[in-house]
Design a protein around this nucleic acid. Structure first.
Lengths: 219, 219
DNA sequence: AAAGAACACAAACGTTCGTTATGATTTTCA
DNA sequence: TGAAAATCATAACGAACGTTTGTGTTCTTT
């Protein structure tokens, strides 16, 4: 029998409340507290549903302190999303570079890194995907180009797998969307209480990704 | 070779701008115009980023006309999300009832209906999934229970497939999340200009779902 | 001890928010 | 035709919004 599914039925956008910014990426002092507070509130209520006063109250700072570190509320969101995409892209590249040159191994490495990132920093992932539209086009542009690079990594692996005859995919673009999409959604439902560790989710999802591209199950 | 991927690189939350409410579900008169306008704006800017005046301007109605039909802005969102879930759930049930009793056929039918719904009414789907958290817990409750029923439909099919030995899934809950998640994301990237018809996307994604649960490719 | 950065605190700016009130005008339908 | 419902038009309410200014206070580093 499979494991029981523990799913709390609340209407929160995100299941977990634990992790926030990656430790190395947190500025110290009030700026770091503001960044973390904004991340928590943006993840929970969305950018439009969070006021500057809310952020500073959560950060135990004065309402005007935010403007000592950021020119505007939008710049806070921009820094969070940029940071999220930087970290995500770095993990994908690291995974790809330490993997065996076999496309099957590279696919597993990419999906593992993708899923782990969305488990461990789910708030970051939710804000990065769900609140990007709140950014002006000028501020969203560099982030979109980085996102396109990340997608390119997966597309390249799929296309090489097809060329080598180890993958059988009816539509490369739709495989990208399917694999990417099921990983993106992880950040919404995953929590430490869901009965699975991030590693277990990554393991199972990378197996699902192998199946999507037509690689036969290992066992 | 696979088809070229046509992906416009803008920072809009949703790719399409065409379809709005299902024709049968649109009230007539100003109420219907307001509901459609709210749907469009909520999909594009989010609930918190849309004002009542924006909605009524888009609906070519007076700013106060909204309150002749709804007690509050939140009730407009609630009606949209309720309507979205009702329509989605009905399509899932219809698909399940007209499918062969084989779990493999039922899985394909469910995923097809799921994907088609998210292609044809992508605005509705985006608002229903991305803006539910803006609803108070009391108003979100009935919607959450309906959503749980919809998920139950897929879980039951997967479990029956496992019991009959036609599916091989390492984790039922994670299969639900993977299949459901890749379908949910369709509403964000699909557009009539993406080079694929909704039927083609549904066809390919139902094949991917078959593969996830361990059914061998048809060909 | 001096200097400069970081932060707290308070007051206020102009704007927009969701919402209500009142009254005239149009449309719908029996 | 007449009554009832829907819509328009205008004004306004208090509250909250993002943001600015200015003045103190605390901390870090030299």
């Amino acid at each position: 029998m499979t494991k029981a599914a523990v799913q709390v039925s609340n209407h929160r956008r995100i299941a977990t409340v634990e992790t926030a910014l990656p430790p190395g990426s947190t500025p110290k002092g009030a700026r770091g507290r503001i960044l973390n507070a904004a991340l928590r509130l943006f993840a929970d209520r969305g950018y439009g549903g969070t006021s500057v006063r809310d952020i500073c109250a959560e950060a135990k700072a004065q309402a005007t302190t935010l403007y000592a570190h950021y020119p505007s509320k939008e710049h806070v969101l921009a820094e969070i999303i940029q940071l999220a995409h930087d970290d995500h892209h770095r993990r994908l590249r690291d995974a790809l570079m330490t993997a065996q040159p076999d496309p099957r191994e590279q696919l597993v490495a990419l999906v593992r890194a993708h899923v782990l990132s969305h488990c461990e920093y789910s708030m970051l992932a939710v804000v990065a995907t769900a609140e990007l539209h709140a950014l002006s086009e000028a501020m969203a542009m560099p982030i979109l180009s980085l996102r396109a690079q990340s997608e390119r990594l997966l597309v390249d692996v799929i296309e090489r797998g097809i060329k080598q005859g180890v993958f059988a995919v009816p539509d490369t673009y739709l495989a990208l969307r399917a694999i990417g999409g099921m990983g993106l959604r992880v950040s919404y439902w995953f929590s430490p209480d869901c009965g699975r560790t991030p590693e277990q989710v990554a393991e199972v999802f990378s197996e699902y990704a192998r199946r999507i591209v037509g690689v036969m199950p290992k066992g």
